[in-house]
């Protein structure tokens, strides 16, 4: 319990002269559901790849269950389930054959869970993979990753191609399997509303650096937008505390501040002689604000 399930320190990755990741520090413990959000090209998939050992980092280190990601022992690998963004299914064989194939690769296989999920998610198992739709392929990939009861489940854009109903079912299932707090789930997505339901920890990747990593609740409570309406013109060099970004125009100012606590509003109101409206933001708005 005390040893983090996954951790990265000073992680950096440079490919062909382009810096994909810089100085990423994370540490997550068992039972968390972690959501990774970022724009396309922000480095989400690269980060996941490095954490899982598919790719060596250019600097820094990454560890899973205490072991270096590049040298994971076989037992540790058996405790990981991974659903990649581009599925790695074999086109010519059926879903059922895939399940048989994967079950032969793991000592522990929960056939009942898989059968139930195949029914609930409506995954056709008797047709060759090459004629399945993209959504069905994604669901099959998820099935294959869940069958061996992994302790760490990593999903890269798992629901991107699913319709809203399928996505809801998928999320509910994720919640179901994470409910006993022994499993850690890490998933990257750009569907922010899904994250808000499911995740308790959030990593926000912006241009290869972690703009935020922490609890989702703390994020919503501590990063707020302030709208300031003063009676007199505000000083041009006004610096609101912990402002991530601010705009000042005569008697009006707007700022995105972090590390906010509700008690601060009165002090600020007094010191600026202004009215202050505190707006808390949903995750999507926060994301947009951070990238503005």
């Amino acid at each position: 319990m005390s040893q983090p399930v996954l951790s990265a320190r000073g992680l950096g990755k440079v490919i062909k002269g382009r810096t994909i990741l810089k100085d990423v520090h994370v540490e997550e413990h068992r039972g968390s559901v972690i959501g990774v959000i970022g724009r396309n090209g922000a480095g989400k998939t690269t980060l996941l790849d490095i954490l899982l050992g598919f790719s060596p980092p250019t600097s820094g280190e990454s560890r899973l269950f205490g072991h270096d990601s590049l040298a994971l022992p076989a037992t540790v690998k058996g405790r990981i389930g991974f659903v990649p963004q581009q599925d790695e299914l074999i086109p010519m064989i059926t879903g059922a054959q895939h399940l048989a194939l994967h079950s032969s690769l793991h000592p522990r296989w929960n056939g009942d869970l898989v059968a139930r999920l195949a029914r609930t998610w409506e995954v056709p198992l008797d047709r060759p993979v090459q004629i399945l739709s993209v959504g069905e392929r994604q669901k099959l990939s998820s099935l294959l990753a869940l069958g061996h009861d992994p302790e760490l489940l990593v999903l890269d854009e798992p629901a991107a191609s699913l319709d809203p109903l399928a996505r809801r079912r998928f999320l509910q299932e994720l919640l179901e399997i994470s409910s006993d707090r022994t499993r850690t789930i890490l998933f990257s997505t750009h569907i922010v509303s899904d994250l808000e339901r499911v995740a308790d920890r959030i990593w926000i990747l912006r241009e290869g650096a972690l703009a935020w990593s922490g609890d989702l609740d703390t994020l919503k409570e501590s990063v707020v937008r302030l709208q300031v309406r003063a009676r007199r013109a505000l000083p041009a060099g006004l610096a609101l505390p912990h402002a991530l970004r601010q705009q000042v125009r005569e008697t009006w100012a707007s700022a995105l501040v972090s590390q906010w606590s509700p008690g601060e509003v009165q002090d600020l109101r007094d010191s600026l002689d202004a009215e202050i409206e505190v707006q808390s933001l949903g995750l999507e708005d926060l994301f947009v604000e951070l990238h503005a």
């Binding site: 922010v192 509303s193 808000e196 339901r197 989702l216 609740d217 919503k220 409570e221 707020v224 707006q279 808390s280 933001l281 949903g282 995750l283 999507e284 708005d285």
Partner: peptide, 10 residues
């Protein structure tokens, strides 16, 4: 409302 600025627990 999960998408609100107010955390769900709150």
């Amino acid at each position: 409302q999960p998408s609100s600025g107010v955390p769900i627990y709150r």
